[in-house]
């Protein structure tokens, strides 16, 4: 027991003394903030960061403060004393929040000329897009023979308690689907949600638990991305899960990276932004980040299951940013009744 108290004393003093040392200098490395699934063992991080180091000789330091919302919160918290040089994972819905918070630098890479203009969602020149995808209702083709082909089809009475959605307050796809209905129905979107309610089995807090319910057979339809079936084809050799492509278009999701304001490594940071548009980086995205690369490059074979809708929907990112909070409130009133 004595030893226990003494051990505690030593640990405590050590912690205290370590804690008191002031930071001596800025990091030597290029500091990159990214969301967790990007740096995860199964994400693009372990492949692309070493590749960048090898090609440029620039050492990187990767930090992940959680999901993409938490990455942005941290950057805003650190606005006065920025630690990061690069941020990965600012999407079209959050872009305006980040730009108004004044935490990003402008940079227009030459490589952007290779990219479809529609994908360059930030016209102010701060954020460089690197991949994109489409939200979609994924359905189990063994249980649903005639898939829905529009948002209106989802209201069909036969789909009672058959759809798993995500909460826009806590999940990216959840927010995407809310914006989708706003784009499609305008001010009447709350009416749509009221009619949709009986067909919703549950609204999960995150994509992971929602999709987990779906693959365990709890409901035949779930909100996800059009690329989800490609995963099942690639790793499970199964084409049973399919994406429903809607006649009026699926809502789009674009992710980008930017240089953080206050970065002392402008030159290296620019090299990194150029790198994310290079083929080396782009070709890793389909099977690790499960999104379409922004460059027009050959896709893996399993991507034949990942449909690209001919039409897509997208709200202007400024309009979205200004109204998201009030839309969420209206949505809550509609679904809580």
């Amino acid at each position: 027991m004595k030893n226990f108290i003494i051990a505690f004393l030593i640990v405590f003093l050590l912690m205290f003394s370590v804690s008191c040392s002031k930071k001596s200098s800025v990091s030597e490395n290029l500091v990159i903030y990214a969301y967790d699934s990007f740096i995860s063992e199964w994400g693009p991080g372990p492949i692309v960061f070493p590749l960048f180091e090898e090609k440029t000789g620039i050492k990187t330091e990767i930090v992940s403060p959680g999901d993409s919302g938490q990455v942005l919160s941290r950057l805003i918290l650190e606005a006065e004393k920025p630690e990061a040089d690069i941020v990965i994972g600012i999407d079209n819905n959050m872009a305006q929040k980040a730009i108004s918070a004044g935490i990003l630098e402008k940079y227009t890479s030459d490589a952007l000329s290779n990219i479809d203009d529609n994908l360059i969602f930030d016209k102010s020149g701060h954020i460089t897009p690197y991949d994109y995808g489409f939200f979609a209702i994924i359905y189990d083709s063994e249980k649903i023979s005639v898939p829905p082909s529009s948002l209106d089809d989802l209201l069909d009475r036969s789909y009672s308690k058959s759809i798993i959605l995500m909460d826009p307050r806590t999940s990216g796809p959840g927010l995407g689907f809310l914006l989708w209905t706003v784009k499609a129905y305008g001010d009447d979107f709350t009416e749509y949600w009221k009619k949709l309610s009986p067909n919703i089995l549950t609204i999960s807090e995150g994509w992971d638990s929602g999709y987990g319910l779906f693959v365990n057979g709890e409901a035949p339809m779930v909100l996800s991305y059009t690329t989800s079936p490609a995963y099942h084809l690639e790793y499970e050799n199964s084409e049973i899960y399919k994406a429903a492509v809607f006649e009026n278009g699926n809502y789009m999701h674009i992710e980008g990276a930017a240089i953080v304001k206050g970065s002392k490594k402008r030159e290296e940071a620019e090299k990194f932004i150029d790198f994310i548009l290079s083929e080396d980086f782009q070709k890793e995205l389909p099977l690790t980040n499960w999104m379409f690369p922004v460059r027009d490059i050959p896709l893996p074979d399993s991507y034949r299951a990942a449909l690209k809708p001919e039409k897509y929907l997208l709200l202007d990112s400024r309009t979205a940013a200004e109204n998201i909070d009030s839309w969420i409130k209206e949505w809550l009133t509609a679904v809580r009744d």
Binding site: D67, G69, L165, D167, R169, E205, I324, I328, V335, R336
Partner: peptide, 18 residues
Amino acid sequence: GGPKFTTLEVEIYRLVRI
């Protein structure tokens, strides 16, 4: 089963995240 069961913590999360 969805947002009809919402706790304060969800609101905190929304304020930070969204």
